[in-house]
Design a protein around this nucleic acid. Structure first.
Lengths: 338, 338
DNA sequence: CTGAAAGCGCTTACAG
DNA sequence: CTGAAAGCGCTTACAG
């Protein structure tokens, strides 16, 4: 809109479009004097080159697309922050799309990003995604694709993840070492790999310490919400009084549990200990503080961008490199809820 | 990358580029048979038109830029969610930038968005922004600009805001009606309008009910963080034992206050009542629940997009319309902290 | 050191 | 109903 072009500048300065373009891009074959003239004028009139026209030549949009399953989510916000910071450093901009854990939306959003000719796509798969056709579309077009956190074992793509199974094992092991024997699990939805892996880590820890697994002590949180945690804790207290600890797939259900227990004046951790997963900010703000597993969100975002970036360079050079899986460290954070 | 073009399709189908383009855009002057052929083939080869080339003709990027001062922030995430949902409905994509409350970053990001030729910019001003030159750049280029939440009274732009002064008044009035007389205020930084207005609302309420204002009971939270709230509450308890209520500029400092009071086993609200502002999710998850002012984030985002959209239509039609200020309703939410 | 020209992939007014 | 052609605003190989 009402933006100046190279042509306008060329006309005003009595130069060719070529020379103006070169001057602005600091080509060595333009005289210092001309460069100075052009630059001064461009500054004066606040010239901003048209990114679209440039793209048409260079075929690089300098934009990446990010699809996250939840926007108002401490962990994913942190990942996004990491991505955006790294992108900024490489002069990239980020189009953000929120799939709201919906497979249908996710498919549409992939299409939209492809149409936009983004230079790459970074995504975390929605809970309801059960099919990878849209993912294949991306890889077929030879566009770098990087998964973070919720990835797919079936697609051969670069990914930044944590070892959910080991982390969950450590969490449950900690509960056991605190003397807890009847440990319930609030698991996540059925499809996503991380909710499966955290469940498996729970089972493995029970196994390892010779504690019987009881499937009626596993409660499914499809929304991974505090409300679910609250409601399940109520039914635990009322129907399974022998349960002495809860390991939740994420902090939110754990916080719902703590809320209920606080209201009922049930002692945490003496009567029931509560363990979360993710280390949201809120985990340290409630009373008692929530023990949890720290998941390095910002670092994950940074790494995801870097994987994209090296992959893009490889493609440009025509190098076919192995896809990389980066596994980040997690820590057990012990607070007063265990 | 490796993307088909209209030319490729035209060649394969033995048609002209024109006809292919028209067929795909459902122009009336193309035969149904041809349209069908083109569409079927485009589908088969997964053709995605090049958005940049299209832009160069239409001068519409179908992208907006959003600058928010904080990313990992319940309220701003909600606004973003509202913006993105509305954008999606209008086939717009959203480039998100995080100014981290920094004036310098904000300036750079405005430049980057202008260079990208976004169709409009939606932003909330950083706490440290003390100058509007970058804002003027946007309006000079005749690009729609809409502020949300943190706006500037000095620039004539469309804005979606709340009445911070009235909302703060209602919050403090509620404390007074609960019998509180010695009410401290955790105020925000000096520059942003909303932190000024909330402070003014606090003063107005005191005035209105004949309570003396004491400036040593006002504590400045430059980061609007729980840590600041925690530390100030400690000094209140130790140095100003007569204080019986706290009104905080936002939920985070209020939650820090509650954390400290809980640790010290100081009764809330009997000894000290605590009032927040914004109604973050966490406000209802801590014990006691935090009384606060509900700020409709998602709705604010939706309205901001709509303001942008009507402004864009006006510009296209050459209509010069008044800038609009939309003021959204807030509610007093009473929980157990007051 | 400067500039004319081709071309990126579309859209659309115009001709037939 | 179909197509040749101009043009959006850049970049860059090439000529002078």
């Amino acid at each position: 809109m009402s933006n100046l072009t190279l042509k306008d500048i060329a006309k005003t300065l009595n130069l060719s479009i070529t020379t103006v373009s070169k001057a602005l891009k600091d080509y060595p074959d333009v005289s210092a004097k001309t460069k100075e003239r052009v630059r001064a004028y461009a500054e004066e009139v606040n010239f901003t080159p048209n990114a679209y026209a440039a793209f048409l030549r260079t075929q690089e949009s300098k934009i990446i697309g990010v699809i996250i399953p939840r926007l108002n989510h401490y962990f994913f916000s942190n990942v996004l922050k990491g991505i955006m910071k790294a992108a900024e450093e490489h002069s990239y901009m980020v189009i953000v799309l929120n799939s709201e854990e919906s497979y249908e939306l996710e498919q549409k959003q992939v299409d939209r990003l492809l149409r936009q000719n983004v230079d790459g796509i970074l995504m975390s798969i929605a809970d309801s995604t059960h099919d990878l056709e849209h993912i294949n579309k991306i890889t077929k077009q030879n566009i770098p694709l990087v998964f973070f956190d919720k990835y797919s074992k079936l697609s051969n793509c670069s990914s930044v993840i944590i070892n959910d199974q080991n982390a969950a094992f450590a969490a449950v092991e900690h509960l056991i070492k605190q003397g807890k024997k009847n440990i319930a699990h609030f698991r996540g939805p059925l499809l996503p790999q991380n909710s499966i892996d955290r469940f498996l880590g729970y089972r493995k820890a029970l196994d390892h310490y010779g504690i019987e697994y009881r499937k009626e002590w596993v409660f499914r949180c499809d929304d991974i919400s505090s409300d679910e945690g609250y409601a399940y804790t109520q039914s635990i207290v009322e129907e399974h009084p022998e349960i002495d600890a809860i390991f939740a797939v994420a902090d939110m259900p754990a916080i719902g549990a703590i809320k209920y227990l606080n209201e009922q004046k049930i002692e945490i951790p003496n009567q029931i200990a509560v363990m979360g997963f993710s280390n949201w900010k809120i985990a340290n703000l409630i009373t008692p503080g929530l023990s949890t597993i720290n998941q390095p969100g910002e670092l994950m975002g940074k790494k995801a961008f870097e994987l994209f970036y090296t992959e893009l360079q490889n493609i440009k050079k025509g190098v076919i490199a192995e896809k990389q899986i980066v596994e980040l460290e997690t820590d057990l954070i012990i607070r007063n809820s265990t």
